[in-house]
Computed example of a mutant assay.
Amino acid sequence: MRLGTWVDPRLGEKPVTIRSGYLVRPFKQALTDYRDKVTPEKKGESQEVAMLNMLLRQAFAKKALGELTVEDFVTYRDARKREGRAASTIRNNLNTIAAVYEWLIHEKQVEVANPIASLRKRRRGIPQPRSSRDRRLRAGEEDNIWGALTGETWQSREWQSLFPVLLDTGMRAGEARCILAGWVRREPGFIVIPEENVKGNEPRYVALSDRAYELLLRQAEGKGDRAPVFEMTKNSAEHEWQKVREAAGCPDLRIHDLRHEALSRMSANGADLRTLMRQSGHKTVAVLMRYLNPTKQEQRERLFGTRAVAA
């Protein structure tokens, strides 16, 4: 330094590395690598793969990563709105893009800003989902559904068991469909769903009503321990449910609404929050509360008691 010959290496030209190569490549390269390397480690792999494949077809995916700006994703967001996509769908799309950027920044050491993080700071930058759904079974609907479930098709016979199981236990439909015959026989009136088959990262401990337990036993009869109790796929279950709800006169009733109904009934019966969280598998009270939707009658009964309401 005294001789004046030393040069600060930080001022020189930085060597081009494989990681910095993402900046000059189309963004679809990052989307593809994320899909192939990160997504397989997730439980919702199939859904995220489908979403990433959709994102790969978008205009922004063809641009170099270093050329992308917030406005590219504003354009994409607005186009999705014009297509009539739900706010929650657009939000999930943008959050997935943000996750790809975070992976590039923290795992691949790419020097790039996350445009979705900037978009979140804007007013109405990210579409906000509607208030949580609070659909409950209305008067007569349960009987109407039972009436619609008297069909003789293979799927209808399985729904004759699945419907009361969902209504009595509050399980997700996907969890119920993954039940194996051996799980039902292991402990009377109770079932433990392994962590790889549930949404969270821990096993699900689900108490069964007498009716649900007997129906699951009947479905498991004659099957090996590793055989699924319900043989319907997600698509066939949803297709059959659509026909059932139309026949029952409740076309807006979704399968997941049965989870809301079940947990709300348990709450109305006096179940405490800790027990409900164990049954539902929720990790926080805030998430559980989205599923506890008392009817007007239940609200009055809990506040003033049965006698006061009757009077």
Rank of each mutant, 00 (worst) to 15 (best):
N269S: 15
A64L: 02
L104A: 08
L52R: 00
A99V: 08
V165W: 03
K42E: 06
G170Y: 04
R85K: 15
A311I: 10
A310R: 14
M1P: 10
L208M: 11
Q299R: 14
E238G: 00
R138P: 00
L137C: 07
A248E: 00
P188I: 13
A212G: 06
L253Q: 04
Q29C: 06
G151V: 00
R133C: 12
A98R: 07
M289T: 03
L276A: 11
L119T: 08
W183T: 04
R254D: 06
V192N: 10
V112F: 07
E175R: 02
E231I: 02
Y34K: 01
E152D: 07
C250G: 10
P127Q: 12
M232F: 02
P15D: 09
R204Q: 13
G170H: 03
D8H: 13
R2C: 04
P294T: 11
P251I: 14
R265H: 05
I179R: 05
H106L: 13
E202P: 03
N197Y: 03
E202V: 14
S264M: 12
E45I: 08
S156P: 01
Q109N: 14
L276E: 00
A176T: 04
Q279T: 14
L11D: 14
K121R: 08
Y22C: 09
T150Y: 00
G21I: 06
K243G: 04
T17Q: 09
L215P: 01
W103V: 14
